[in-house]
């Protein structure tokens, strides 16, 4: 689905760094986030409160963990639509392990391991068999969630131990939840990985031109395989947190999350065509979506109506710069 009509051109000289920082996507996102924050504080008297703001973070941390890895995958020119199905399968397998008397460390290992295994399966199909990732992951999406349905049917797993529940519900100190700390740590790791390592440079190189990258000695398939495994790992991590937070597993868990994670990534300024994007943008986009849904939640807006806002936000935020550029060219 790459569009050959948009050629990248090299400018004669780079813009002033300050100017480009001010006009960057990230500063636009900061503005949007601040605006929503202010609107929320005026709209609801319950918003500006340490505990409310702490609750807010539960709204997006799990999805945002996936979005971090998904950002790298999309920058490399691939996509994974099976992440929510991986959560379902990982959660089901954790529930199964629980039936055999597994303790918290084993449960976490099962969740993360299942995630990596699913990611590796996607990666294998895409890199070894040379299949388009969008179709592969539509298939594995049905397959993974389908296996959960085979195992669980209309039943559910319950009775997770308290030490496991802490992972999704516990606080490290005051109002800072374990989930938030984990997300912050992961965000920093992914920022370093993408923006400060050779690996990250190669991810960008693959996304811009994977043939050229291959000729420059980049092991394209190996890197893409690793990215699929990382996305699987983060989905497994989200499965651990979500299962711990809800305290139960159903096959329909996390339905529709794949689209929300991708929305975060695209809203964060990652090009869906690959080759461009930043982790800071994704983190800001996750925060914006958390703010929007939480703010609307305080105003008693049903979840399904919130989705109109996130959908519109996605299109408007992408369309506005394009309209602005068209308007400037005409003027």
């Amino acid at each position: 689905m790459t569009d050959t009509s948009s050629y990248r051109t090299l400018p004669d000289r780079l813009d002033n760094p300050l100017k480009s920082a001010v006009l960057s996507w990230e500063s636009l996102l900061v503005l949007v986030a601040v605006a929503i924050f202010i609107v929320n504080s005026f709209a609801s008297p319950y918003f500006l409160n340490a505990w409310s703001l702490s609750d807010l973070t539960f709204n997006f941390t799990e999805k945002a963990l996936i979005a971090l890895a998904m950002a790298l995958l999309i920058i490399s020119g691939e996509i994974d639509l099976s992440v929510a199905a991986i959560i379902s399968l990982a959660s089901t397998l954790m529930g199964l392990a629980l039936q055999y008397g597994a303790d918290t460390p084993v449960l976490v290992a099962v969740g993360l391991g299942a995630g990596i295994a699913c990611g590796a399966f996607n990666g294998f199909l895409v890199t070894r068999l040379k299949l388009p990732s969008i179709v592969v992951t539509i298939g594995t999406m049905s397959l993974f969630r389908g296996i959960s349905f085979i195992i669980l049917g209309d039943q559910s797993f319950k009775g997770y131990p308290a030490s496991f529940a802490w992972l999704g519900q516990g606080y490290v100190g005051w109002v800072i939840s374990f989930e938030l700390v984990l997300f912050a740590v992961c965000a920093i790791i992914y920022w370093v990985l993408l923006h400060r390592t050779n690996f990250g440079r190669r991810v960008f190189a693959i996304g811009n031109n994977d043939v050229a990258a291959r000729f420059s000695g980049v092991r394209v398939d190996k890197i893409k395989f690793i990215l699929f495994c990382l996305t699987g790992l983060m989905s497994g991590m989200a499965a651990v947190l979500l299962t711990a937070r809800l305290g139960s597993t159903r096959p329909s868990i996390a339905e529709g999350w794949e689209l929300e994670a991708i929305t975060m990534v695209v809203l964060g300024g990652v090009s869906i065509l690959g080759g461009a994007g930043s982790i800071i943008g994704v983190v800001l986009a996750a925060l914006i979506m958390g703010l929007v849904t939480f703010g609307l939640g305080l105003l008693n807006v049903p979840g399904i109506v919130m989705s109109i806002f996130t959908g519109s936000l996605l299109i408007v935020v992408i369309a506005l710069p394009i309209l602005f550029r068209m308007w400037r060219q005409r003027a």
Binding site: M1, V266, S307, I308, L314, I315, L323
Partner: peptide, 21 residues
């Protein structure tokens, strides 16, 4: 606007579904 179709329809998917409600 030349927005990639997957992004456009991802957005309208949630918008249309929300409008039903």
């Amino acid at each position: 606007l030349n927005i990639p179709p997957i992004v456009v329809t991802l957005g309208t998917l949630t918008i249309f579904r929300g409008l039903v409600f």
